[in-house]
């Protein structure tokens, strides 16, 4: 009796997930993007591509780190021919840097806007456009209603959305699939060699719909996210 009930509940949960846009990978296609440990936190172990992700950044340094994480994910999403729209406040993003993340910078269309109202409008229009792979936008404030509109737009067009929220204030709740926070970490010591190591971040998944929150330390190495925990422990020992 209990088994039958559990089975029923599991099936219902799967149905709900499908209704919310989380589809299991299609037959014959790998659903795994190659994001390493980040994927495990999401339902079915698949990074939700057809939803909106929110990245919280309190200052310029965090915004740069968030930009790095988004660029890394974008390089997996865009593969060769994908096109991305990046909506920014000022012309801050430096296109040549994207090449280091495996993105062809000429496949990214930059839109610079000053008013949040325009940004919201452009973001929603871009999310509705199925010819795009992903849309990234930098915003100050976004309310629940607006995030819900974004989510509805991507459910039809199957575009991935990223919202970088540059705000220090208390965050209101949104309908985004996940809320991330990225901070830079000191890069690993390369056996006493001078200079900087690989880019390293503290990635926190603060909120996630139907999944488990988590916290990782990641490194960007030759086009892949690699967990960086072991190295850090040895470093801490040295410090101690």
């Amino acid at each position: 009796m209990a088994d039958a009930k559990r089975e029923l509940i599991e099936r219902l949960q799967k149905d709900i997930l499908q209704l919310e846009g989380y589809r299991p990978p299609e037959a014959g296609r790998r659903g795994v993007l190659g994001l390493g440990p980040l994927e495990t936190a999401f339902p079915n172990g698949v990074f939700p591509q057809h939803s909106v992700h929110e990245l919280v950044c309190a200052n310029s340094e965090q915004a740069a780190a968030s930009g790095g994480l988004v660029s890394g994910i974008l390089s997996m999403l865009m593969q060769k021919s994908g096109v991305c729209v990046w909506i920014g406040r000022e012309r801050r993003l430096f296109a040549p840097a994207l090449a280091a993340f495996g993105i062809a910078p000429h496949q990214v269309i930059f839109i610079s806007l000053h008013k949040d109202k325009d940004t919201l409008w452009v973001m929603e229009e871009a999310l509705k456009c199925s010819g795009l792979t992903a849309v990234v936008c930098e915003l100050r404030e976004m309310d629940f209603k607006q995030s819900r509109r974004f989510q509805l737009a991507v459910e039809n067009s199957r575009v991935t959305g990223f919202v970088l929220r540059n705000t220090k204030d208390k965050l209101s709740s949104t309908a985004c699939a996940a809320r991330w926070q990225v901070r830079s970490l000191p890069s690993a010591d390369m056996n006493g060699l001078p200079g900087l190591g690989f880019l390293r971040w503290q990635v926190d998944l603060l909120k996630v719909r139907n999944g488990h929150t988590g916290s990782w330390q990641l490194e960007w190495q030759d086009g892949h996210f690699v967990p960086a925990e072991e190295i850090l422990i040895s470093e801490e020992r040295q410090v101690g």
Partner: peptide
Amino acid sequence: PRPIRLLQ
């Protein structure tokens, strides 16, 4: 190496 954010 180029920074992802460049100040104007």
